[in-house]
Amino acid sequence: MVRFLIRRIIGGAIVVLVVTLAVFVLFGPVLRMQSDISPARLYAGKNPTPEQIQRVSELLGLDKPYYEQYLITMRRLVVGPSDEEKARLCPGSTPDECDAIVGRFGSSFAEQVSVDRLIWDAFPVTLSLTVLSAIIWLLISIPLGIFSAMRPRSLLDRSSTVFVLIGQSLPVYYLGLLALYFLAYEFEVFPPSGYVPISDPIGWLYHLILPATVLALQFAAIYVRITRSQMLDQMGEDYVRTARAKGASEKRTVVRHAFRNAMLPIVTMFGLDLGLLLGGAILIEVTFGLQGIGWLTVQAAKRLDVPTTAGIVLFSAIIIVIANIIVDLVNAALDPRIRLE
């Protein structure tokens, strides 16, 4: 098990390394080739003189060769900004002030603030939205999927098929706008936007329940479908017949045997979806004015804020890699056959 874990972590580290390289190349040299937006120029403010640009270039270390820039970037990512860098970028400020401006992911062009700070401010919003939404969609889809599989072609099964079709074909921003119009604007049941930290749980839930539910409906549709088909497959397996031949009750057969096996691919999909959403649920965050990672991505892209965009891409990649490792571990815990491979 330990060897399994170590192998997965090494694999994940390699993926992250490749992503850093890709991000560096895409947001550095390639971006500069495609346009003449030099980062130095963007930093330097409106209508800068060539001397100003030159000075900013030196300040940011952009005058150094690319490989050296990459090594500096990687070093900063792993161990944090060096003292020399801090001294160069925020002379005369206190360490705390400087930490707010210079971080592992670099500094934003648009604001005098580190990308780290931007991400860590936005992340709780996205995390809250994702977790709450995931709870809702699992609570809807797992029972619905199981019951549909128990009684194929029944009224419940057919209704859930309709639900799946609607859920999959309605885009979240459309469903989101409908929900906002009726539940926030017309009847004022829920607030139209905003986020309240979880330190106020009721306010947190009150502000998040609408976007989380809209997001959950779309995922629930997919999960109902996969749960149903997995359960149908498993219910036809020989070991299910064995369980029945032992005299196991229907509930026991379904829950302890069939669902236990049907869960494996669902867990895999769930882990990957969580990872993906934690990298920012752009449409839903923008629709509901939630200032999470997705919203931050849009802001950064609009302002040509290259370091922030690059930071988010890298951050999302790391989250997805971690999600993958967790999925592998959970699967290994659930399926003894995986542990031996």
């Binding site: 020989d238 070991y239 017949r241 064995t242 302890r256 236990r260 096996n261 494996l264 056959r337």
Partner: peptide
């Protein structure tokens, strides 16, 4: 049953 390979629950 006929097929012992698939007649036992694989994860228990």
């Amino acid at each position: 049953f006929q097929d012992p390979m698939t007649s036992l629950d694989p994860v228990i």
